[in-house]
Computed example of a mutant assay.
Amino acid sequence: MDIMSVLNLGDLAQAFSKMGMFPVFDLAYYIVSILYLKYEPGSVEVSRRSPVASWLCAMLYCFGSYILADIMLGSSPIDYFQHNSHILLASAVWYLIFYCPLNLFYKCVAFLPVKLVLVALKEVVRTRKIAAGVHHAHHAYHHGFFIMVIVGYVKGSGVALISNFEQLLRGVWRPETNEILNMSFPTKASLYGAILFTMQEAHWLPVSKSTLILAFTLFMATSKVWMTARHSHGSPFALIESWVCHLLFGSPLGGSEEDHHHAPAAAPSSPLKTKEELSEGSRKRKAKKAE
Rank of each mutant, 00 (worst) to 15 (best):
A221K: 08
K188L: 05
Y106E: 09
V114G: 08
V124Y: 07
V124H: 00
F216Y: 14
F219Y: 01
Q167T: 04
G193P: 05
A131C: 13
G152L: 04
L247E: 06
K155A: 06
V114Y: 11
A131F: 03
E176M: 15
T211S: 13
M220R: 12
V172C: 08
M227A: 08
I147G: 00
T228L: 02
F146C: 11
V244W: 14
S190K: 00
G193D: 00
K115G: 03
K115E: 14
L121W: 01
T222S: 07
L181T: 08
V149D: 05
H142S: 15
L218C: 13
N164I: 15
C245V: 10
F237I: 07
Y153W: 15
L191W: 14
V159R: 09
C108K: 13
E179S: 15
T177V: 11
F165P: 04
S223R: 04
A229M: 12
G156R: 02
F216M: 15
F197A: 03
P206K: 03
A189N: 10
S157P: 12
G171K: 10
L169G: 00
L169S: 02
E166R: 14
L121C: 15
K107L: 09
L196H: 05
T127K: 07
F146L: 13
I150K: 05
F237V: 03
V154G: 07
H138Y: 15
M227F: 11
T228E: 10
R128M: 13
G133D: 05
H138M: 10
Y153H: 12
I240Q: 02
C245K: 12
G171V: 10
H143N: 13
L191S: 08
S157Y: 05
S163W: 12
T222A: 04
P236E: 00
K224Q: 15
F145K: 10
F185Y: 13
M227G: 01
I162R: 04
G171L: 06
A221H: 09
S232P: 03
S210C: 10
W243I: 10
A238Q: 11
I130H: 04
E201Q: 11
S208P: 03
F165M: 10
H138N: 12
V114Q: 08
V134K: 02
T198V: 03
S242N: 06
E201P: 00
T127D: 08
W226R: 05
M183A: 08
H231M: 10
A202H: 04
